[in-house]
Amino acid sequence: MISSQERKDCRAHLQPGQELARAALRFARVPRPRKWFALLALLAAVANAQWLNYSTPGVPRTRDGKPNLAAPVPRAPGGKPDLSGVWHVQPTGEAEMKRIFGENVGIVDVPGMEIDTISKYALNILADFKPEESPMRPAAAEILRRRKATDFPPTNCLPSGIPFYGLVSEPVRIVQSPALIVVISEGDTARQIHTDGRAFPREFAQPSWMGYSIGRWKGDTLVVETAGFNDKSWLDGMGHPHSEALRVVERYHRRDFGHMDVEMTFEDPQMYAKPFTIKVTEELQPDSDVFEYLCNEDEKDRSHLR
C-alpha cells in the first residue's frame, strides 16, 4: 500500500468530476461481469492535508519513534478495550484479486484507490463461495441480474451502507464513548452504535440506510447487532441485494494496538437461504485521519449517468 503522504499527494491532483466521468465512460465498454471495477473508481476523494501526519498522543512507539503496532490494546476509562482510532481494512492484495476476479481486475486505477487497496468482499461479499454454492434465493439473483452499475447508490451520492463503507480504499474512524460509539467514514453518513444497554425497538417504523445498531461487550469483544435497514444499499459493488429483514452481527476484537479482527454475519432469510460470514482484519492508521468528503461538491456525473 502506498504511504499516506503519497496517497495524499495523488488525491490532491485528482479532478474528481473528470475522473468520475471517465470511469463512467469506461464502464460502458467493460463487459458486464467486470462492472464493479468502474464502480469503485466512481467513489472520488479529496485531500485535506491538515488532517494527516499529526503525531497522536498516547500512541506507543518503538525506539526509532515509529508507532508500535504490536503493543497491547489500549483501554477506555471504564476498562473495556478502546476501539478508537483510524482504521483501514487489510487489502486482499493484487495477486489474490486477480486469481478471484481475473487479470483485468485493475482496469480502472485512480491513484490511492487501486485494486490492492480494497477488500475482495467490497467487490463480492460472496467471494468465498463457489458460484454454484451461492446461497442466493431466486429473488436475490433476479435483483442482482437487473442492477446496473449506474444504479449503485454511491454513484448517485447516496450512502454505500454496511459493510461496503469499511471495505474500500478510504479509512474509517471509530470514536468510542461509554454509551455510544460513532463510526465516521469518508463520504458516508456517520454510524451510531448504542452501547448503553438498550435493546432493539419493537418495530422499525422507518428503515434507514445504516440501520439501528446496538453493541454489548462479551469479554473483550464488542458484539454489534444491527437491524432496521432499508433495502436500498448494496452489500457489495457487484450488487448483491438485501431486504429490510437483514440482520447483521459484527464482532470486533482489537487483537493488539495496531490490529482488529472483525467478523460480520449477514442473515436475510428473504434473500439468502442461509446466513453467511466474512472475516477481515482492520489495520490501525496511526497519525492519519478521515478526510472531509462531500460527494455533491463539484459533482458532474449524475447528468451523464441518466
Binding site: 454509551a179 448503553d196 444497554g197 438498550r198 432493539f200 425497538p201 418495530e203 422499525f204 417504523a205 422507518q206 434507514s208 439501528y212 432496521g228
Partner: peptide, 14 residues
C-alpha cells in the same frame, strides 16, 4: 424531513 420513530423516546440510562 425524515421521521424515524425508532430513534425517539428511548429513556437513556443515567
Amino acid at each position: 424531513m425524515l421521521v424515524q420513530a425508532q430513534w425517539l423516546n428511548y429513556p437513556a440510562p443515567g
